[in-house]
Design a protein around this nucleic acid. Sequence first.
DNA 1: CTGGGATTTCAGAAATTACTGAAACTCTCG
DNA 2: CGAGAGTTTCAGTAATTTCTGAAATCCCAG
Lengths: 181, 181
Amino acid sequence: MKMPPLHQEFVLHFGEMGSRWGINRTVGQIYALLFLSAEALNADQITEALGISRSNTSMGLKELQAWRLVRLKHVPGDRKDHFTTPDDLWEIVRILIDERKKREIDPTLSKLRALEMQGPVGDDYSEARISELREMIEMMTGFYEDMARLDTEKLVRLMTYGSRIAGLIDKVGGYLPASRG
Amino acid sequence: MKMPPLHQEFVLHFGEMGSRWGINRTVGQIYALLFLSAEALNADQITEALGISRSNTSMGLKELQAWRLVRLKHVPGDRKDHFTTPDDLWEIVRILIDERKKREIDPTLSKLRALEMQGPVGDDYSEARISELREMIEMMTGFYEDMARLDTEKLVRLMTYGSRIAGLIDKVGGYLPASRG
DNA sequence: CTGGGATTTCAGAAATTACTGAAACTCTCG
DNA sequence: CGAGAGTTTCAGTAATTTCTGAAATCCCAG
């Protein structure tokens, strides 16, 4: 693995964290490498920098593309495909949350709805628990979807605003409809 | 695995989702079982319901306790330890986010800070990319910590309010300090 | 067409992670 | 103190996941 020390440490860290993030070591490393790289890299460059097999690189890139975390970029005069990460970090965060939601939450939400559809087949407690869980997930994903709709500038303002937002709602809350349509 | 069909389906689903959530199958199943259970269960009941080994149950419960997702509950007149999940779903969500933050984000934030401390050891692009990433993570975790401080009632109000919150900030934003801290 | 570079697929090997049963330990009650 | 129920640890095994090299496929320039 030959690259500047900073890159090296960063790449190794992402590799280690990979398993906690639900991706494997090499996928984490490939992402880290591309993230720090000013220019797009081709698969052979990645293979060499990380000291892994060419096929492993190919699979890693495929997975990162499935996550929409890396993009293909054509370099004129080069037949090879080159890869980059989006420049805009906010975009990366949105993609990450969307994809995790899709993989980790949506299937469970569907399952909960399906279970409720079956009608009363359990004891009261478990039925109630399942409904409550579904409602909570719907509220949280609904909120996220609302936030994701905001443009970056507004989002930054909101986050910087922090918990004072709550006071704001207290103040004006009475004059506004209590729930979303 | 003998339990009502509703429980069974729910438990199996949590087992399957486990790997996506960064826990293993049995840990997911144990959690699901306790979640639906009106009364606290002891380790033997869990072992029998899920058809796994007693030691596996013990390890699963230990991991769930490390996540603070299950609690010990003493049942009078019974020497065995009994386990439950918190009743309040909001509390569960807070715990989940806190713990995931601790495992998935905090180590990276530390690493980024450490890398920046080393002074200028990389190219300009990668240095900038790392700072930018650290700042973004700090903003998001800061916002989360602010939100976590709110009581449930305010939080529900805020989430229900959704994206209209942004308009609210637009309206009063000028009269308030631009940043926290 | 077709020759050859570029990429992907895939079956098996390697590495990692999960699970089990047996043994060790802990705690409490008599 | 010490018997025994209850729990945890741990070493070995099973299952799963990741990685590799070879073969197959793709695709464009000539």
